[in-house]
């Protein structure tokens, strides 16, 4: 009965994450130095880091809580516009960043309220409408956002009075991606993660076991939107230009695709998804007409052929192999 006594340990899987995390952190921090000779490639890597952060936040909501928020990019946009506005008004970027991210969190928690009533596909549809409205709001309130023209020449933030170099900001982005993954890992292995997974699997049963489904869904939205917001705040000065199209539904879909393609509900799947898909739009820049077609095809392939994504695919295969043994053993035990 030693197996049963271990029940209290909530994270038998935690041991397996140390090495990949160390490798990921090493690669993330080494990349800006390795690519420092090629500003373009370093830039692609930096954008990928932001997408790793975003994908981790989307993973918390989609992979672990079972909610597919297609207004994710809109939340990033709320933070981005706010940070750009505040820094233009003289705020320090490092003060504007938490304020903007918090605004995105609060907006995300409020915009996530329909998820308390709508399940699965219906919430996704609702979030699509919310995303559309947010994009329209970015266009409409042109006094704050400069409308469709967008805001350009956003400077890189300074630190201690001197503007950050490209390399220094790349390291900031790497740090944010690593911290994002670490936070997700901590959440997943905590009792909060256990509650969110229970809500994903069967929210009615979760409630029956005493889990406050409404409260924890809102907590998930708050944290997931925080990831969106921090990513949005870091994105604006890095690209140097934001417009409503920077945070439209296609961006939400891309982030979702990174999670779904990589493997929702796994820590590393969405990281792999972001690493594979974020640079794609740069590589395909000259073929931008086929880019959206390619994304569309990839979405169909993921839904039809690999619902568990790359990481989930391996997991499923292992399970399928194990299943017949399980069933045979149980039949024996019943007799």
């Amino acid at each position: 009965m030693t197996t049963v006594a271990e029940t209290k340990d909530p994270s038998p899987r935690s041991i397996g994450h140390g090495l990949p995390l160390a490798c990921f952190a090493a690669v993330a921090f080494a990349t800006p130095f390795l690519l420092s000779g090629n500003r373009y490639l370093a830039f692609v890597a930096g954008v990928t880091m932001i997408h790793i952060l975003w994908a981790s936040g989307m993973n918390l909501l989609y992979g672990y809580t079972g909610l597919m928020p297609l207004m994710f990019a809109g939340l990033a946009g709320i933070s981005a516009y706010m940070v750009v506005g505040l820094t233009a008004a003289g705020w320090s970027f490092w003060l504007a960043l938490p304020v903007g991210a918090l605004a995105a969190s609060i907006a995300g928690t409020i915009l996530g309220l329909p998820s308390l009533r709508l399940k699965g596909f219906y919430f996704t549809l609702c979030s699509l409408v919310i995303q559309t409205v947010v994009t329209l709001a970015f266009v409409y309130f042109s006094g704050l956002t400069n409308g469709d023209t967008g805001i350009s020449q956003i400077p890189l933030p300074s630190f201690a009075g001197t503007p950050l170099s490209g390399l220094a900001y790349d390291l900031v982005l790497a740090a944010s991606a690593v911290i994002g993954v670490v936070i997700l890992m901590v959440i997943v292995q905590s009792t909060l993660g256990r509650r969110l997974i229970a809500i994903r699997e069967d929210d009615e049963l979760a409630g029956m076991l005493g889990i406050n489904v409404t409260g924890y869904k809102m907590i998930a939205f708050f944290i997931g939107s925080l990831f969106a917001g921090i990513g949005g705040a870091l994105y604006a000065p890095y690209i140097g230009f934001i417009s409503p199209r920077s945070f439209d539904v296609l961006i939400s879909m891309n982030i979702w695709l990174m999670v779904a393609f990589g493997g929702r509900g796994t820590i590393w799947g969405p990281v792999i998804g972001a690493v594979l898909l974020a640079p794609l739009s740069f590589l395909l820049q000259e073929y931008y007409t086929v880019k959206d077609v390619l994304y569309g095809l990839l979405i169909i392939v993921v839904i039809v052929a690999m619902p568990g994504g790359i990481a989930g695919g391996f997991k499923r295969k292992r399970r399928e192999a194990a299943a017949p043994v399980d069933v045979a053993a149980s039949r024996r035990s019943v007799k």
């Binding site: 271990e6 029940t7 209290k8 256990r194 229970a198 076991l209």
Partner: peptide, 25 residues
């Protein structure tokens, strides 16, 4: 109704998280 994708151990751990009076191991 059980959490079919989770192991029995994880099912039990989930039941313990917000229990009124969680049983000892």
């Amino acid at each position: 109704r059980v959490f079919g994708e989770l192991t029995v151990r994880e099912n039990v751990a989930t039941a313990l998280v917000d229990a009124r009076d969680a049983a000892s191991p």
